[in-house]
Every structure is written in C-alpha cells, then in structure tokens.
Design a protein around this nucleic acid. Structure first.
Lengths: 343, 343
DNA sequence: CTGAAAGCGCTAACAG
DNA sequence: CTGTTAGCGCTTTCAG
C-alpha cells in the first residue's frame, strides 16, 4: 500500500517548487530549463505521481464532466443517443456523467442537484417532466443546458425531431405507391411525439385529397400501457386482429413504430395475408430488427446518433460561447424503403 | 447571473463561523444552539446556498462515485447489467461514472487513469483485454475492483456466469424431452464464454451416452464476425441453410444465443418445417424478444440484472471492509421453458 | 456550545 | 527562467 504522492513530493524530489512542477505538468510551452524539466519528469516517473484532479478542479473552478440525464438506459433509442454524445464529448477530452432517472422526477431532481454540486457546467437533458424552475436556477448559475426532444418553457438550445414530417413522409410514400386505403395503428396518443406523427399522417392524406377512413384507424386504449417493446408488439397484434374483423381491409398500414409494425405483420401473416402484396406496412424508428425481419420493414429513420452528435456539439459550443443565443434545431426524418412496401 | 455563494457567505450572514455552518450542514446530531441553527438555515435558504462537493471531496479525500467500465453501451446485456448496478449504488447514495470503451484498450486505459485521478475508490470492470498491471497499481493505491465476467489474473472480487452449466442445462432439457439427434449452431467459438457453453453441451451429451453427430454441429467461420445482433441472426440463417442441405436433420437444435436461434427458426420455417414439432430449438440469453416471437423461445437465462446487483453489492462491501478477502462468485443459469421445445 | 486556524492538492499572480 | 505565496471551499482538530 503506497502513500499518496502529491505535487509537493515531486517538488522536493526534484529540488524545485510546486509552481515549476505544475508548469511542467500543464504547460508544455512554458519556458523551463531543460535540465530542470527532465529532473521533474524523472521524479514524476520514479514516484509514480498521478495528479489529483480534485485539487485542480477546486483551484481552477472548472469541470471536465458533462451531465447527461435520460429516462431509461435500457431503451436502445437512448443508448444510440449516448453513443452520439460520446463521439463528440470524448473528442473534447470531457467525460459523461450519466444519470438514468427511470422516469422518476424526484430522482431526476436529485441528479440535477448532484451535478450542480459537482460543479458540472454543461448538461444534456432528455427526460420526462423536467423541473423547469430548477433548470432556470441552474442557468442563472452559469450552467449550460441543451434539451433533447423536449418541449420546455425554457430559453435553452433545443434538439428536436420533426415527428410531424415523419408521419407525413410515411403517408406520402404509401400514396405515391398507389395506395388509397391507408390504415394507422398506434399505441395511445398520450405522448406528444405520437400525436405529431399522427397529425402529419392526416395532413398528408388531406393534402392528397384522400379521406381518412375511421375503420382503418386503430389506436390502443389508454389503460394498459406498460413499458417497453413487448407492449408495442402486443398492441400491434391486438389492433391488427381488430382490423381483420372489419368488413374490409386497407391496402396499406402505417404503424406508430417498428415494434408495433412487427406485431401487425405477424398477425396479418398468421391470417394468411402476404406482405406487401396484400397489405403494405410502414414502421417508424428504423431499429436494427427492420433489416432482419421478413419482409424487411420500410420505416422512418430518426438518425438518433446524429441527433446525439448535434446535441453534444451544441453544448460544447454554448460552453465556449456562453453568451451565444440558444438555437432551436429540428431534425428531419428520412424514409428507408425496404420490402414491406415494395409490392 | 448570480455570484457563487460559499459557506463563508453563510457564516457571515448568520453571524457565526464556517465551522458551525459546516456542522449544521453535515452533522444533524452535533449540539448547536437551536437559535443559531435556525439562523444558519435561514441564511442558507435566503442566499440559495448549494454546497460545493469539490471542496468537500478535497478536504475529506473521499469520493462518492463508482467507476463502471463496459465495452458497449448499445448492447442490452450491458444496459441490463448497469440497471442492476444502479439499483444498489443509488441506495448507497453514490453515483455511477460510466465509461464506454467500445472495446478499445487504449480508451479503457484512459478511462481508468481518469477515474483514478478523480479519486474514485471503487470500480466495476467489464471489459476486453484489461490492463492487469495498471489494475494492480490501482489496487495498491486503495482502489477496490470488482471484475465482471472476466478471467483476470488479478486478486479481486469476481462475478462470473456458469456458461458451462448453461450449455449443460440446455442439452439436458432436450434430452429429457426425448431428443437424441441434437444439433448445435453457433458463431465462432472465439470467446471464452461460447467455448464454455459448447463444452457444457458436449459434456451433457456424453453423460447421457449420446454421441455428438458432427454433421449436426455448425459453427460459423472466423473471418466475418462483425459485431452485433445482425451478425448473429444472419449467421443463424446461414448455418441453418447448411444444416438443411445435409441428408438428415436433427430433431432439435441448441443455439449459442437467442438471436442466432431466431435466424435458425426463420430459415427452418421458410423451408416449411414446424417448430417445435419437426425441430425443437433452444436459445441462450433470454432477451425480451424470446416471448414475442412465434413460437416463443425456450432459452437459458443469465439474470444479468441480478449479476449487476451482486457486483455492486460486492463492491460496496469491499469498500467498507477494505481488508476483506476477495470472493469468487459463479452465477447459475436457469432454463426458461417456452413453446419452441414444447412439441 | 462555538470559533480560530490549519490544510486537503493544486494553480496562478507576482516578484525576482 | 524560477520560487513564494495566496487561496479555491470545505472539514476538523483544538482551545476556549
């Protein structure tokens, strides 16, 4: 068990002052006589000196950590986002302090406080029900905030995805392929993003002079929403069943997300229908499984990784230019065409 | 923009000393006259004082962060692990400093150094090719290490999973259901864990006096191993194809993981075979999708969340009892029986 | 019950 | 080119 060796020990060993050691350590360009410099280096080497970042941080009142707040680390959407953040943050020689709130507002608040106490100066927040008032307090105290996919009443840089346009694109794709009977299957429209998708879908039908047929619109009922993929998948199966019991089927279906689409396809196939020949299907998200399933799934891509990159870059920028005005970024969807609409 | 308020400001405002403020803040039982205590509290409230953890940390030379090193945050296995860790670590009022190495040994080393410089005293390491020598250095310097799923030449607490037994259980399940022609489909046996699974599988056949039939054993060739689910799935499909071209099929197949099993099932079904009637299939991992697919997949569960909990508990223990001997933990697999073998 | 003072490890004027 | 020194914000003896 070695004892902690500090910059003082190095100074003594090299017969110099801590100032010089510090300079050798942090300031390569600072003029230090070569012989002294090497003596310091040798001492560092020999004593196995490792700088204490806590001392440094207290003195310089800076932090090389970025707080990231997300609701659910088990959701691939967020891990992809984190990968995008990391890509940028690592290049800035900074580190991510990851806070997983499990959608618990109290825990989120605790994390926020902790980050602030840790003197973290930049945060990327992608959470539920964020405490705007506390966020304002943070901003007043020199904390830069980037809000990811949130509709906050806060003057900060925001990264959002154009769900409306995503819904529009999906519908347009089907229309351009000749479909006029278009269904929509979704989990409850309790989330803002889902409502936007649906609105975009409706707007597109409207624009092309196609009437939305109520019997083709199946939206899950509120009560049951558990979390996760399982629910989406099951919901897709259930609602597809309901659709099958109608007198007449649409020639195509747009699903609120990929997992729902998988459920829908499964159920239709179980009933002897061919995808895309009998019914074309479009999903939303572009998760990995889309390429894997049979038929592969046409879907809307969010380029979540890119959004992560953008969020991190925006934060880095605002930390360097603390007086720059916050920006509003609306990321655009891309349609990924695959077999499920290629009939 | 407010100026930073410190413990000094509070002391002044309450007409007392920083010592008293610190005591009010950290030591509820310390005898402080009630009137003074409330005066301090009021000052804290009024000035919006937030303690600076960096100062505290420097003074007390403690850290409330736990370093967690994993190779890939996009892999659900690791996020589940992290959830398990969090569950415990949060209860200890500590925080996770998450380091995602992307399987890059250099990056891993950098993270390790950073954590040490940050005075982190406990780390949970689940990585590739860890630098044992540096880990030894850390241990000498009072850092507690728990190694997760690794075969390290290091005297530290280890959490491992009994892959061998998992392979054994899977084979035994098929044998007990009357199968004698049992196939095995896998990605290359380049990883230790995969080899163990295969060995367990072989040992079980052996113990029950069943001959392993080479033509039923399909193991992917080395070169192509990209990362991720896609590969496993494709590999399953490819190898199932090869199997179908043999003169004779096994009545059951054990797959190295669930994604591989999905590929195998897909390919067999595409060729008109019924699962489990014609061929029973067992996977390994118990990912969410197992319940979703049709038929649902019998598999081996690793209870990764539990392993995370255990790892974190072990770490917390060793940090409290720094002289306690490291332990070796071997977690046991569970067979989850579903439709794919229930013919 | 309370306060003065030292000092954790480091950096950055400032003086030489 | 180098060293002295003050002090970041906090806790904790020690003395009263």
């Amino acid at each position: 068990m070695t004892k902690k060796v500090t910059i003082n020990d190095i100074a003594k060993a090299a017969n110099t002052s801590t100032a010089t050691v510090s300079r050798v350590l942090n300031n390569p360009d600072y003029p230090v006589k070569e012989s002294l410099r090497t003596k310091v280096m040798e001492a560092i080497e020999q004593l196995n000196y490792v700088p204490n970042l806590v001392g440094k941080q207290l003195k310089t009142n800076t932090s090389n950590e970025i707080g990231v707040i997300i609701p659910n680390i088990s959701n691939p959407y967020y891990t992809l986002l984190i990968s995008g953040l990391e890509y940028v943050i690592r290049q800035s020689e900074k580190y991510i302090l990851l806070c997983n709130t499990n959608g618990d507002p109290e825990l989120e608040r605790k994390y926020l406080e902790y980050l602030y106490q840790k003197q973290v100066r930049g945060m990327i927040i992608s959470s539920i029900n964020p405490d705007v008032e506390y966020l304002r307090f943070l901003q007043k105290n020199h904390v830069q905030i980037v809000a990811f996919e949130q509709d906050l009443d806060l003057d900060c840089t925001k990264i959002n995805f154009d769900y409306y346009r995503g819904g529009f694109l999906a519908a347009e794709h089907l229309i351009k392929r000749g479909h006029r009977d278009i269904g929509f299957i979704s989990a409850p429209l309790s989330r803002h993003s889902r409502r936007k998708v649906y609105e975009g879908f409706q707007a597109c039908l409207n624009q092309y002079g196609i009437k939305e047929q109520k019997e083709y619109i199946k939206i899950g009922s509120d009560q049951q929403e558990i979390s996760g993929e399982m629910f989406e998948y099951q919901n897709g199966k259930n609602l597809a069943s309901q659709l099958l019991s109608e007198k007449k089927l649409p020639t195509s279906i747009f699903c609120i997300n990929d997992m729902t689409a998988f459920g829908v396809i499964q159920q239709l196939q179980n009933n002897g229908l061919k995808i895309p020949e009998d019914v074309a299907v479009v999903g939303f998200d572009n998760i990995d499984m889309c390429e894997i399933v049979n038929p592969s799934l046409t879907t809307i891509d969010q380029s979540t990784f890119e959004m992560g990159r953008l969020a991190a870059e925006a934060l880095m920028y605002s930390m360097k230019n603390t007086s720059a005005a916050p920006t509003n970024n609306l990321l655009q969807p891309t349609l990924i065409e695959r077999q499920s609409t290629n009939g």
